[in-house]
Amino acid sequence: MTLAVSIDQLQFRYPDGFSLSVSSLNVEDQEQMLLAGISGTGKSTLLHLIAGIEDAKSGKITIHGTDITALAGAARDRFRGRWVGMVFQTHHLLPGFSARENILIAMMASDVPQSERPVRANALLDKVGLSSSDRDRSADRLSVGQQQRVAVARAVAARPALVLADEPTASLDPKNADAAIALLQETCKAEGAALLCTSHDPSMRQRFSRVVELDAVLAGGAS
């Protein structure tokens, strides 16, 4: 069975001296895993390395069978757009573009045929519960909750093998946080994508069947 993510002997160092070393970490296909740890320990950095928006010093990060560290420039960007979805704490929807357009832009790097993209965008927005009247509104005019829903739909729009969620509930109250993570998990499951989520919130642990402490990964290599 193909692993969604496989990390092997990963080394990373910021110019300011902060370093990260992960000997091994695997996420199974369609698995949902929580990477837990307190703020500032490197959870986001690890997600950025997996997404290929930070460069590892050494080691391998294999996503859906492809070593992303061996890809450079545009090839890595295309690979990320096709196989990796991302959800951020502050959603990062494109301002000036409607909710529907944010989904369509995420599909630009996908294998979804052009003619099917508008249908798929609507289906995803249906799935996350965004009403028809809100779909053509500019993303920056949607409520925080609506933006969160669009961000989830966008993360799975290209039919990725892996969704990386970086503190997706950090800015939400407990009730909304619970609903948001439930939506993320259900959507990833429905779309067949693995989910690797980071959080410093202890209450999140109960929602995941597999929880990995970052410290443990850094210490000796969780797998």
Binding site: D77, R80, R82, I105, M108
Partner: peptide, 13 residues
């Protein structure tokens, strides 16, 4: 916006 487009698979070029 540029950073998000990069994350969504748009190359720097």
């Amino acid at each position: 916006q540029v950073a998000v487009l990069r994350v969504l698979g748009t190359s720097a070029a």
